[in-house]
Write a protein that binds this DNA or RNA. Sequence first.
RNA 1: GGAGUAAGUCAGAUAAUCGCGGAUGCUAUUUAUAGCAUAUGAGGAAAGUCCGGGCUCCACAGGGCAGGGUGCCAGCUAACGGCUGGUGGAGGUAACUCUAAGGAUAGUGCAACAGAAAUAUACCGCCUUAGUAAUAAGGUAAGGAUGGAAAGGCAGGGUAAGAGCCUACCAGCAAUAUGGAGACAUAUUGGCUAUGUAAACCCCACUCGGAGCAACGCCAUGGAAGAAGUUUAAGUUGCCCGCUAUUACUUCUUGAAGAAGGCGGCUUGAGGUAUACAGCAAUGUAUAUCCUAGAUAAAUGAUUAUCAAAUACAGAACCCGGCUUAUAGAUUUGCUCUUUUU
RNA 2: GGAGUGGUGCCGAAGUGGUCAUAACGGCGUAGACUCGAAAUCUAUUGUGAGAUGCAAAUCUCCCGUGGGUUCAAAUCCCACCCACUCCG
Length: 113
Amino acid sequence: MKSTLSLKKNNDFQRVLQKGKWYNGKLISIYILKNNKDINFIGIAVGKKAGKAVKRNRIKRVIREAYRKIDPEIIKGNTIVIVWKSKNVYENLKFCTVKEDMIKCFSKAGILL
RNA sequence: GGAGUAAGUCAGAUAAUCGCGGAUGCUAUUUAUAGCAUAUGAGGAAAGUCCGGGCUCCACAGGGCAGGGUGCCAGCUAACGGCUGGUGGAGGUAACUCUAAGGAUAGUGCAACAGAAAUAUACCGCCUUAGUAAUAAGGUAAGGAUGGAAAGGCAGGGUAAGAGCCUACCAGCAAUAUGGAGACAUAUUGGCUAUGUAAACCCCACUCGGAGCAACGCCAUGGAAGAAGUUUAAGUUGCCCGCUAUUACUUCUUGAAGAAGGCGGCUUGAGGUAUACAGCAAUGUAUAUCCUAGAUAAAUGAUUAUCAAAUACAGAACCCGGCUUAUAGAUUUGCUCUUUUU
RNA sequence: GGAGUGGUGCCGAAGUGGUCAUAACGGCGUAGACUCGAAAUCUAUUGUGAGAUGCAAAUCUCCCGUGGGUUCAAAUCCCACCCACUCCG
């Protein structure tokens, strides 16, 4: 991901979750905050209630993969945090549905090209 | 063939495209990054954190009291609450499985309710004596009733009625002898009874110092400065020693703010594999050979094709040895019982 | 990653072997008193789980996170597991 870096500090997560704009999908919700750079920052958050380590890891992987497919179509200069809704049943996790849901969210936010 | 039992192995593979982690090499520039290439990248439980060690710091760990742990015997191990082999007990037709299994004659406590009485006793009954009788005194644990438990069990003798009071058998206890390394087993003799509970206190034997990689060390930045007061603080264990160590705490004033970062520790180890020898076995010894994750918002995914079907439990976080718990399916070997056929 | 604490009616919480926990005690709910009415206060409570039998009254059995064990007897003692919460740079 040349045009995207991952968020690392807990501080950054908190700033985006508090100050960013909030869009809701079926499986995930997205927080977006503009930064004045040419790069996108992305962070993925999965709550403890979603499951144990294996399930949480798998959710993160699926979301990251879905984002990677969409990445070239997104306007640069945003900090994005994707939050998995822990109410969801783990069996609903499929690559296609997550991807569709993510596209809907981004188009709502209006950052798709 | 069916049913069972014990021990073990594997935990999808191959190919294509895109993608991720660190490692090594090369190239490029700007101290740092980018690109390319190469090989490599989660488990049998990585889990629970229930034990035991290594490692780090406090004195490489010391003395006393208190406290914790283990508990048939022997062996193995770095160590253990683990493992192996035996002994006793329980279950099963059997293969085999399970077993916190020291001491209740060292002492103390507890045993509710019921019952006459719970470790000592006479309510009813039975018998003897006194009495016309009611009843009184004494003997008695065979019978009744209560209870989880009532003075070993059962038969015969015995007696006023009874009682290990006496005898045989069984059970239990002690001593002696023999066998065994020991737990213990077998035999003989003796006296004649000793309730249960130690996962109640306790006794006996062995054993345990505390904290944990978010330990700890280094680097950069910062941890502030001033005044006053109190005292030896703090750490090492709950306490007392001893030791480390020379400051620590409180209040006021001024000032600054955030769960701030990087590197090491960090993977070569009580390591794996193969063979030989010792041992019933756990395991040990010797030789050869191999290097096999090291992340820090935390690396293994997506799509397609083929294999009949690809699906369980589940993700390393300092590292090992166990235990416990979760688990789809496939498969190997030994043994037991039973059925049919020959 | 490591260390620790807890789980009892609808909620909080006591009870550390013995008459079934009338589940103590407090809150909650319901009913009554006081008031024109309400609040506060006071009083009562046959409500405080599940199942079985029964027309009903009532009776019996099982429940202290779950499953085993010790004991005559376990919410309490021991072992294993599940869940919730707190602390450590």
